[in-house]
Design a protein around this nucleic acid. Sequence first.
DNA 1: CATTGGCATACCGAAAACATATGGGCCAGG
DNA 2: CCTGGCCCATATGTTTTCGGTATGCCAATG
Lengths: 295, 295
Amino acid sequence: MDLRRLRYFVAVAEARSVGKAAERLRMAQPPLSVQIRKLEAEIGAPLFRRGTRGMDLTDAGQALLARAGEALALAADGVEAARAVAAGKRGRISVGYMFALANAVLPRLIPELRRSIPGVDLHFAELSASTREARLLDRSVTVALCMPAIHHPEIQVARVGAQPFMLAVPIRSPLARLSSVPMARLQGRPLIALPRPDQDPASSAVMALLRRHQIVMPVASRVETVHSAMSLVLAGEGLAILPACAQLGAPRGIVFRPLRDASDSIDIAVCWRRDSHSPLIRTFLKCAEKAVARM
Amino acid sequence: MDLRRLRYFVAVAEARSVGKAAERLRMAQPPLSVQIRKLEAEIGAPLFRRGTRGMDLTDAGQALLARAGEALALAADGVEAARAVAAGKRGRISVGYMFALANAVLPRLIPELRRSIPGVDLHFAELSASTREARLLDRSVTVALCMPAIHHPEIQVARVGAQPFMLAVPIRSPLARLSSVPMARLQGRPLIALPRPDQDPASSAVMALLRRHQIVMPVASRVETVHSAMSLVLAGEGLAILPACAQLGAPRGIVFRPLRDASDSIDIAVCWRRDSHSPLIRTFLKCAEKAVARM
DNA sequence: CATTGGCATACCGAAAACATATGGGCCAGG
DNA sequence: CCTGGCCCATATGTTTTCGGTATGCCAATG
């Protein structure tokens, strides 16, 4: 079964004439006549009654016509959909983000995406650093919002912004009185840490910061998310060094203070597979830049 | 857009490999590879990611695949439906019948048809003689049940049975006492007639019967249907000469009596356009023969 | 470093489709 | 009654496209 034949058949059925249909199809009449007869031979039954004034569908022809039009439309819609997806006008983008960015970035990012790519399905999943990397690699997420970036040969990275580290302290702590906290004041205090540095690059950035200033802070607890970290800070378990944007989700009773003489910051990055060439990714990147800039 | 390409595309997508798909399609690998690339060129975007271990759909490919399978199925279904209609396994048959046969034939005919051609839509319309002919000619009915047959160069006829003429009399009439009525007893009595002979061949058959026996019956009323005729007979307006099968729909108070020494009968026939070649008509004919035989 | 598995390219023969030319049936108008 | 026009079917040559074989290229593997 060939779509060309079906297309010809539909044309002849609509024009009720081989000649008229041939004209509309920009071809000569005889080959069209031949194609119709071949179609009839393939089906094994006449599809038209030949009269002296054109052609007329038989019952079998009407049965075919009812499906043929739909099949043609569906095929055309298929290529159209494929083109639209390839052009980034339709499709699906799945975003893996980290908890720390949820409150700061998503509220700005999502409307931006909806405006830029209205026909595209958006999916969001809050994922740990290691899961984001795995899901990028197995393609079950399209892009990841990371802080800091994922480093992997298969993964491409675009920096879209940076966040200074700040100190999260209970509002009742004496440190909260300072407008900024000198690094030296952290010496020896208990730290609420994120997962081990080998599992979470954000954590290793904090460690590097402390090491560079030769500060030692005993790890009081390890937690999964900045939210848990802030809860423990509020409970008085220790202090946390967190990206500034985390304060958007901070509970009452926690304040963020800049770290004096520490200009360290942590990158916010968009990461995706090097071999994903969807134009959606470019668009996503632009949206993410805008969203972070307005943060 | 060619269905062959779509078929190939679906095969490769399912096999996730050009080689495997080529094997399943009973063709060599290189031409299949070429066809896939042509499809990609036509769409203007890659549909597969080529890895070292086979092929993998891109998002655009998935969008196409979703429609392609349906389009293929629809096209296949279309030819299947056309074949089924041509073979008389599906389709539609529209039957024009006359009132006089409704009670006698339809209750036996319809179940017979349902058994023989279960997938076929049945339509019935009670039509006058002239309308049956017109509707046959313009194809708005497929077959007509007639008594007697339609004569027309475009219309083919098959006799499926015959009905003797009988006399319809009120049960209180003295004629009702006779087991059969001699023709001579009709002389001069008022007749309830069907439409004028030039409009209704059944009526002209009755006139011929009377003429042959040299009986004159004044026409008391002309009615459209045997049912009306029987109502008037019951009202004492006159007598009616009707096909025997009409007694099935006779009201209480009407009896039918054979006409002694008149062996006239009227044919029951199935009529259809000479250029209608649907096998449904053959099947219908068989069913009608059975139904009439069991009458 | 060689081998293997898988897709892409090159080239050739075969099949299918299209165009031009022509034939034949059916209605209409002279 | 005949003739011209309309429309579909058939015939034939040319061109396009498709499928097969041979081969190249790349990457992963041992």
